[in-house]
Design a protein around this nucleic acid. Structure first.
Lengths: 248, 248
DNA sequence: TTTTTTTTCTGACGTCTTGTCAAAAGTGAC
DNA sequence: GTCACTTTTGACAAGACGTCAGAAAAAAAA
């Protein structure tokens, strides 16, 4: 163990401040609104100092994305730790995604931004690996439940179906759906008033189609997700408080 | 009808040249690679002239997005026009999406780019409406098949399920899946070697879960999508030739 | 404490981009 | 040929990213 000098602590604190500050700017004004000069002014340092922390703007984005995926992973883990059968627990992960999108909308936005604007090209492979590793653990978390269901006989996959394929299906449906909800003006125009309900319903249809037992029962499901939502939101708020307190 | 003067024709041609040129630049280098100076140089005009056509960079993006969605709509319409039962025809739309992503990858990329970078804010409502209108027609195309299936009794929706909800489900799954395939390095890392197959399989599971008859049969389905793919690719190539020819 | 060494910070600067606009060039009617 | 109108031009202002030599601060040594 190595104790930090006051100076080093100040530096760390500043790095955190940069990221905390960048997130809302980015969420509100998009990539172009996030200017290095603006950050420097807010943080009360010279622009050059920011470049001591991050080699370029893209590195800041990537650092934010890592924090975002860590958040998501934490929610996933709490979801699958809930007591219930295998199908209940994947459903819980779906709810975790919804809560993530609702409570950390800037982060949700970030993840998608990274995906489509070529930022990876300009960033260090080091941090890229951190991100993909974290994303991988998210998927493995879900894959674990599916594998478990498969072992227990709740879910019988055809020989050509792999556990990972089901992960992709759920991921596409939930993430795709939430993304469309957040970014498609035409959704409302076409007459979809509650996208969330539709997404959940379609997830259940998919799982039913795979014959993941027990099959969908409306009231049972409603009761369960109510419970999950309450639990996860509690945890989110606890995490929030825990983070704001310590000055590190 | 009103005949165009040579000058006006030249102007129209230039506009088309701008868009044709912008697309590949954008696809390869991302939003930041697309510079007005670069376009002007390539087109052999002064930068100011570009601004006679488009008020800003975002307008160019939006114009490209419109062309992209028009392409997609055309493919959708050709897909549902194929002879087959209702379930076959939604499946055909799924294949249309795949072909779109494969044959017009820059356009596919564009649509997603528009979604996540705030470009709409800086563009004219006029063109925005064109885009959402076109996107809406895409969804209505799919909704039509679903409604038809529902009327024919192939698909029995619960009272709380709406046709549009099913559209959203399919859209999320296919578009989400294709997007993840194109942008997620961690997919391969997690052991998914054929994302397309997985997406198709999950779509079928979802439709089975909704009890859309006839239910999934592997060999029947394979034969059908082979047929669809062949037909649509033919049409794509025909369209391509038709476009290159006339100087307008 | 004072001096030396090392680390960190600074902000003007070079370069690139977007978008503007007055002046120049082009177009067509009479 | 002239005149009104449209289109094009490219220098220019504003602002952003990333750099780097020199200033300042911190740490180490004397």
């Amino acid at each position: 163990m190595h104790t930090l000098s006051p100076k080093q602590r100040a530096i760390r604190l500043r790095e955190r401040r940069i990221l905390d500050l960048a997130l809302p700017i980015l969420a509100s004004g998009g990539l172009s609104a996030l200017s290095m000069d603006a950050i420097a002014e807010q943080i009360q340092t010279a622009k050059g100092t920011i470049y001591n922390h991050f080699a370029n703007k893209e590195e800041i984005l990537l650092a934010l994305a890592v924090k975002a995926v860590e958040r998501r992973l934490s929610l996933f883990q709490q979801a699958i730790a809930m007591p219930g059968n295998s199908r209940d627990r994947v459903a819980a992960v779906g709810i975790a995604c919804e809560i993530y999108a609702d409570h950390f909308p800037e982060m949700f936005h970030m993840e998608n931004l990274i995906r489509h604007e070529n930022v990876l090209e300009k960033t260090s492979p080091r941090r890229q690996e951190v991100l993909t590793g974290c994303e991988g653990r998210c998927m493995l978390t879900v894959a674990g439940v599916i594998r478990e269901a498969s072992m227990a006989g709740d879910l019988q996959l055809e020989p050509d179906q792999k556990v990972e394929d089901v992960v992709l299906g759920l991921w596409s449906l939930v993430f795709g759906g939430l993304t469309l909800e957040a970014t498609s003006p035409s959704l409302a125009a076409i007459g979809i008033e509650d996208a969330r309900r539709a997404i959940r319903r379609n997830c259940n249809a998919m799982l039913d189609g795979l014959r993941w037992r027990p099959l969908y029962q409306a009231d049972r499901y409603q009761a369960w997700i109510g419970q999950v939502r309450k639990h996860l939101i509690q945890r989110v708020q606890a995490d929030r408080e825990r983070e704001n307190e310590p000055t590190l």
